[in-house]
Amino acid sequence: MSAVTVSDEQAVSTKPKVIQPAWVRALHWTNAVAMVLMIMSGWQIYNASPLFGFTFPRSITLGGWLAGGLLWHFAAMWLLMVNGLIYLVLGFVTGRFRRKLLPITPEGVISDTKAALTGKLSHDDLSKYNYVQKLLYAGIIVVGILIVLSGLAIWKPVQLQYLAALFGGYEGARYVHFFCMAAIVAFMVVHVALALLVPKSLRAMIIGR
């Protein structure tokens, strides 16, 4: 855990600055695995009773058929939830969320969006997020919480009926769950594309520096 304390300090010694502390990296990649399992098995489950006029190609679904998809979904959910809870607790306790994600100002987001679109946004300091990153990373955490809560509401619409009611009941929770998935997939597309465009950010998430 010593990495936590050095993580965002300005480089004090000859040691190279740690951009992503070990706990962030471990939780990030565990989350990546859990998310992929949840999304692919979730598509399998979606296909059994589609909300919209399309289904996901069989080749990108997990589980082979509905029961297999459900088994994967209800196994990977533990990985996702436990990992996510640890992340939230550590994010608050270490102050990482406050340091990295706040403040988020509309002016900052607008000017950084303009800068990004005109190719003027700098990536010199990977330990500092720009306003667009702050907004997206904070937003995806909220979406992550929502997808777990709406998933719990779908799983337990009687035992957790007050939670389900917050989403407009069982059927409402299905739609919220779907749109959260869509948001996460959209995030992942941008996130992975940008990580590949700025390889040193990917390196930082693997080896820390």
Binding site: V33, V36, L37, L62, G63, G64, W65, G68
Partner: peptide, 17 residues
Amino acid sequence: TRRRFITGGASLGALTL
């Protein structure tokens, strides 16, 4: 055929988990 998910699942499960 129903059991195919096991074969597919086994390799992916082993690889990912």
